[in-house]
Design a protein around this nucleic acid. Structure first.
Lengths: 339, 339
DNA sequence: CTGTTAGCGCTTTCAA
DNA sequence: TTGAAAGCGCTAACAG
């Protein structure tokens, strides 16, 4: 296509200079080139450009699950910030399968992506650490871990305060009088799950409330709706007494509320519930759900900013933790003295 | 990096053959090459590959809005199908801005994407048609319009049955006795809005119910929550009588339900409501929303399948319309004779 | 079955 | 300020 750009009567080098930016070119020449480009509807070949040494303007986000509102919002943040930085965003859904994660990484290596962001909770196993360590090593580019356990200084990390959020949620319940607070999570030790439960325990302890193992249900293996639904069913069936529930995330809360309602318990009259994530659906529930807000979009933005900033390992700028806060809505009520 | 692959003692051509697939290579040689690749942790340069004639394994989806659950699900379908076809998915959010749409198209031209999918409702203006016509022309690749008005045979089209869905929803209401059915849409003539209203009118007409303009509210300019909330407020304030509402989409329905509840109207006791889209949130509402289900994910998959299939224009395979159906939940009740 | 060679389209020294 | 020429890493056509 470039021969054709000689339509302008200049050399390829000159054309490149005006198109690729920066360099000094006589305004007259520049105009001629631009004119020719327009006439021929010429489009540079980005691959050739990358091949000759430019970085590929691409940020990848590989998430465990693209259906979850949480990751979608993070992805939206990534897309935003990438666009603002003149990059585009490639997206991958792994569905938790290692194979797909590996494929995504491989592809991004081949494509020389500037950064790849791994997002979504995981099981923090030695295998996981080894695998991701290998990725970090292999990727010539920045690898950023978003909402996942860090790995020494091998990768960049953007995280949010799970423990603090859970602490705030639980404290809220405690401060309005609740003492028998069920915690609904899942069995598999996903990092999010563990961290949030940790916040729950810490709050209980600070309020001098003893932890009752019967109140923590985690029979289910996934962090989704059934975990909440079945969790409450089980609690009810076992005759466990509780006046509030802290759900590890909003969709679990949703399941819990459904089960509660089926059992004829009023929310928040009979039992208060608080969630975690502040998904869009939280405010549409009846009653609107009090939950912990996460800076979804900002997480995504921060991840790409950090990656492009390319901080020194150990500079302190290669790691950041965003805050969370409780948003009060209508699903919590002070404990009635009678109860 | 290839010189290094001569580590295997063969020529670059041979390496290419084993890596790029297809060609006949002696198993022994093949093994040597693979071995060398492993030892050197060699990764092909996808850009060089594209540059030398291969298609870029990339499908782009450019959507008006990445926050909407609808488009996200479509995007998920695109990602799925792309991955299954050995491609990856680039994602762009335009927020309805032409500039961003144009930028996305330009970038995908430069990157030689195999297909670009334009998704999301739009205003069907002459400018729109001209603009998209230009895209179709410019993109050497497949352009597919998803859920948008077609453009002659210039582009591929994947659509779903808006009219049929709205017809089904409205008929449902009519068949259980409702006659005063409010339609909540928006003022701007987004194509979805118009089509759904068309289905509404057609159902009314088939049931011999006269259309009352007072029942169609569309003061609001966007198809979102306030459109429903404000729409109902206005109806109520104007003292318009109605026993059911057909909302042009689920989030409008959500707003409508909120307004109804604030006014002390029971759903579905006093007024029935049906939505459109079947977003995940629909089943979490109280009561769960009866709504029209759209094949979100399948739309995305169909779009990439069609693009990769590369059908002849006018072959009949360059256009498809997916069906929709009503899913009955708890927000509709037969009209009480008393009312 | 395998090696040689000629580009793919762009950027970038190095000279002019 | 501009032109000529040398690659970037890969594939494919053509010989061996």
């Amino acid at each position: 296509v470039r021969d054709v750009a000689r339509h302008a009567g200049v050399s390829v080098a000159t054309v490149s200079r005006v198109l690729a930016g920066g360099r000094v070119v006589a305004p007259a020449t520049q105009a001629k080139v631009l004119q020719a480009v327009r006439e021929l509807d010429y489009v540079v070949n980005a691959h050739a450009r990358v091949l000759s040494g430019r970085p590929a303007p691409m940020i990848a986000i590989v998430a465990t699950n693209v259906q979850s509102a949480f990751l979608l919002q993070v992805a939206a943040g990534v897309e935003e910030q990438a666009a603002e930085s003149g990059r585009f965003c490639a997206i991958f859904a792994t569905h938790g399968e290692e194979r797909r994660e590996a494929e995504a990484i491989k592809l991004m290596r081949e494509l020389r992506a500037e950064a790849v962001i791994l997002a979504g909770g995981v099981l923090d196993t030695p295998e996981y650490r080894e695998r991701v360590g290998a990725y970090a090593q292999a990727l010539g580019t920045r690898l950023v871990l978003l909402g996942r356990p860090a790995l020494g200084a091998a990768a960049l990390v953007v995280d949010y305060d799970n423990v603090g959020g859970a602490y705030a949620a639980t404290s809220h319940l405690l401060s309005v009088g609740h003492r028998r607070i069920a915690a609904l999570g899942c069995k598999e030790p996903f990092t999010n799950n563990e961290l949030r439960l940790e916040g729950y325990r810490r709050a209980l302890s600070d309020f001098g409330v003893e932890l009752d193992p019967a109140l923590t249900t985690s029979e289910h293996t996934t962090m989704d709706r059934p975990a909440g639904y079945l969790g409450v069913k089980r609690l009810l069936a076992a005759g466990v007494d509780f006046s509030a529930v802290f759900a590890i995330n909003d969709v679990i809360a949703t399941g819990a509320m459904a089960a509660l309602r089926e059992a004829g318990r009023d929310i928040p009259g009979d039992v208060s519930v608080v969630g975690f994530d502040n998904l869009p659906l939280a405010q549409e529930l009846t009653p609107p759900l009090t939950t912990v807000h996460l800076p979804h979009e900002e997480l995504g933005r921060a991840a790409v900013r950090m990656a492009l900033d390319n901080p020194q390992p150990g500079s302190g700028r290669d790691h950041m933790m965003l805050g969370t806060h409780l948003v009060i809505r209508g699903s919590v009520q002070p404990l009635r003295q009678a109860a």
